[in-house]
Write a protein that binds this DNA or RNA. Structure first.
Ligand SMILES: [Mn+2]
Ligand SMILES: [Mn+2]
Ligand SMILES: [Zn+2]
Ligand SMILES: [Zn+2]
Lengths: 136, 136
DNA sequence: AAAATGATGCAAGTGAGTTGCAAAGTTTAT
DNA sequence: ATAAACTTTGCAACTCACTTGCATCATTTT
């Protein structure tokens, strides 16, 4: 189990320190996107900046991606296996106005959007807001 | 000309003060979304908090809408005539990684997206990032 | 003319995110 | 094995966009 997480890091040339393994494990256990604060609360002994840098490291290696959901707290979620965070991998996100949680809607990829002439899409931040199934 | 702007405010029960008219005029002159800072620079004599509150007032009345483009500076742009900022009025936004500007892509409305069962969409913040036509 | 209401300007606060730097830990070279 | 080089971590301080409290000024109502 931990071996798998360890390999995930090694495969991305990230040294599997104790802290990083814990954070990665925590991320895999979530079914929603989490903020730096959420992680701080989960690991009270750990320092904010260490966690921050851990997330940036993971994000740079495309192990996780970040979502601006409009709450002012950047959210992070695991990428799917083999994700390169390119347009083809993009999915929508849903932010519930009631429970304030943010989810990846990985079932559905973002379709090709007709951009004006000569515009080139590289990334996207797609956030749908409303009421989630649990709160409805 | 100014009469038209004045009416736009009055129609929304906003008192057309000098400051508000100037800000509204400025917004109508843009072909891109602007930040609070952009407006501060355009009106150096005006106070930031007044401008801030002006924008919030406009936004509440759906004269303008805001866009989180991931730059950390919330952007504002005029709504189209008759916009109610409901799902049916939604459009994509484009943020250029090169010139760092953000545009409303009002030509194209956001299509209905297949949400999971019982999810209800109320608003959205859709930002596509890449290279704009001018920078390409 | 006085009172009530609303807008504005100034200054200070909030808070997520970020950075510098020294200490601790790990890896590599001698 | 030991020293040097490199990496990660923890702490504290900083940045910066945004937000708020409050006194003053302007406008509207009584
Ligand atoms: Mn996602
Ligand atoms: Mn727009
Ligand atoms: Zn919910
Ligand atoms: Zn551009």
């Amino acid at each position: 189990m931990n071996k798998k997480l360890e390999h995930k890091l090694k495969d991305n040339s990230i040294k599997p320190t104790a802290m990083r393994l814990l954070v990665l494990k925590f991320l895999t256990e979530q079914n929603k996107a989490v903020s730096l604060q959420d992680i701080e609360l989960a690991f009270e002994r750990a320092d904010k900046s260490t966690l921050f840098r851990t997330l940036k490291t993971f994000e740079n290696s495309k192990i996780i991606h970040s979502i601006e959901d409009g709450t002012g707290h950047l959210k992070y979620a695991l990428c799917l296996e083999g994700c390169s965070c390119s347009p083809i991998d993009l999915h929508y996100h849903f932010h519930c106005n009631m429970c304030k949680e943010t989810f990846c809607l990985t079932e559905l990829n973002v379709p090709t959007i007709e951009l004006p002439k000569n515009f080139e899409m590289q990334q996207a931040n797609m956030v749908i807001k409303g009421i989630c199934g649990t709160c409805k």
